[in-house]
Design a protein around this nucleic acid. Structure first.
Lengths: 158, 158
DNA sequence: GTCTACACGTGAAAC
DNA sequence: TGTTTCACGTGTAGA
């Protein structure tokens, strides 16, 4: 009775077919029910998933790059010619007792500067209590801020 | 000579083995070289990829929810009690000829209000030329804006 | 009748 | 040595 190997081979074939059925149930795109087609569709589907992941990661990186670069980067991103062509930038910070801080900024106008400046002050823990902004040729900003430790409602938290 | 079917079956087996090899080359986690193990690892890997995609989409949605909600939502998000407890909000927009627009805002303080307001004005195509902001109890903002059609450098683009 | 895809049992190789 | 896995040729059933 050589049915030892026979039964083993039957069980093996059944295992393989079961896995194949599982695969067919996971992959949504099934062109044909062929074993070969199932494997081929599986490969294509996996590549699509990888591509999808790549796109999503790219999208996330794009969104993270849209984050406010900070006001200091403004000076960094000005090339030397721009620096010389315009009036000398000014970036004064006067810190009084009690956490009151006065910030004074003059520099060349640059896209996103106001937003990034406000956002940077917020990041630094400085709440704008009052500020005056003007921009005709260059960018100018005076801001009176207060440090936020336990945040009582203040402007930049709003 | 019955080798017609024989060769066909051989080609079929070769196709299937080729697909299996491709699958093994795509799936990074190969525990064993078994046919059964290869299919099992493939299923596990696909589930990991789907889970990864789910996490990435979740992350993107979180980031998108952090986007500036816009200044108008401030009024919407104030519940009736808050509305009655505070002074009546004021949201005046005076538009003069030539695209010059004066915006005046008074309302209850709210986290992110300054940033969302500036961002909203930018979205509306209004470049802030001058603005005064104060926030002690409530939030107040006066802004002189100009419409941006062909954008000459202006404050909100900076 | 051809062509295709599958299941089956068996022998052999690997561990 | 036995167990497991694979390749092989064949029979069969559906288009």
């Amino acid at each position: 009775m050589p049915s030892k190997n026979l039964m083993a081979e039957r069980r093996r074939r059944k295992r393989l077919n079961d896995r194949l059925s599982m695969l067919r149930s996971v992959v949504p795109k099934i062109s044909k029910m062929d074993r070969t087609s199932i494997l081929g569709d599986t490969i294509d589907y996996m590549k699509e998933l990888l591509e999808r992941i790549r796109q999503l990661q790219e999208e996330i990186e794009e969104q993270q790059q849209q984050e406010t670069p900070g006001v200091l980067s403004v000076f960094r991103e000005l090339n030397p010619n721009e620096m010389l062509a315009r009036n000398t930038p000014k970036f004064d910070v006067e810190r009084k007792e009690g956490g009151d801080t006065r910030v004074e900024i003059y520099c060349a106008a640059k896209p996103g500067l106001l937003l990034s400046t406000v956002s940077t002050l917020e990041t630094l823990g400085l709440d704008i209590q009052q500020c005056v902004v003007s921009c005709f040729n260059d960018f100018g900003m005076h801001a009176s801020c207060s440090e936020v430790l336990p945040p009582p409602l203040s402007l930049l938290d709003y």
